[in-house]
Nucleic acid binder design. Sequence first.
DNA 1: AGCCTCCTGCAACTGACTTGCAGGAGGGGC
DNA 2: GCCCCTCCTGCAAGTCAGTTGCAGGAGGCT
Lengths: 144, 144
Amino acid sequence: MTATDQRTDRLKKALRDAGIRITRQRAALLDVLADAEDHPDAVELHRRAVARMPGISLSTVYRTLTALEEQGVIHRHQFEGDAARFEHAETEHHDHMIDVESGEVIEFCSDRIEHLQKQIAAELGYEIVHHRMELYVRKKAGEG
Amino acid sequence: MTATDQRTDRLKKALRDAGIRITRQRAALLDVLADAEDHPDAVELHRRAVARMPGISLSTVYRTLTALEEQGVIHRHQFEGDAARFEHAETEHHDHMIDVESGEVIEFCSDRIEHLQKQIAAELGYEIVHHRMELYVRKKAGEG
DNA sequence: AGCCTCCTGCAACTGACTTGCAGGAGGGGC
DNA sequence: GCCCCTCCTGCAAGTCAGTTGCAGGAGGCT
């Protein structure tokens, strides 16, 4: 059993535990999400899901993505000017850099920034529910 | 002449210099933008503009907002699950905190975070074109 | 004042989702 | 293993925010 198979099983268990039926369509989408190493949008996920479960409709993909997000097993990202992109939640917390030329998405994390964010909010009497930080970047001249 | 009148004049000048005609519709919208102390969306801006120039259409508001953004005289923000919100660009650079309960938008800025962002991008061989950082927050218990 | 453009309002369109509906299929209970 | 209740699905139609084609209207240079 591969690492992504195990991930698929954990995702399925989370859903069954929440009383959500594992249909063939949902199983196909979970497989696709567990396999994905990138940040695909709904249409791309649908394209990949059709390969495993021909006939699955785009509305089922949208409905299932919404349910999966509600269960916290996937994250939804809304980058500038794009359709929403998704990734399974079995990753360490991280933020995103988007290469504005290639569209490539790079993950990163900074404890120091997170700490400063918390501090700034606290100074104004707030606590952070969640945050969004995206760096739109370009390869430096002479690199890449 | 008030501060916002002066701001309106600067905005108009920026447009004329870019070869963009100052029509009555655009003048009305510039007035509204110069006056706004909050972060209104297109529909709210249209509502306010109608008070100064009855008959101005929503599509003209959208078209003008796009042009103003291209000229760099206003900024567009796409907060989670909301229509785009706008503010004139005559402010110091800042990021936003959104109170998830009241919808209130609070501006803040952290040089230390900006510095860390630049550093993280540089370490991966990138330079930042622009960034987006939003903190979704809630008033701490016992405050507010 | 004349005239060339660019701008405007209207209505129709787009893209990304969302939803109503009637038929279909999980999966617990037997 | 089969039943049956309920939830899920595909389809088509709808929604929401924003965009665009068009024909008439108005800046602003001369």
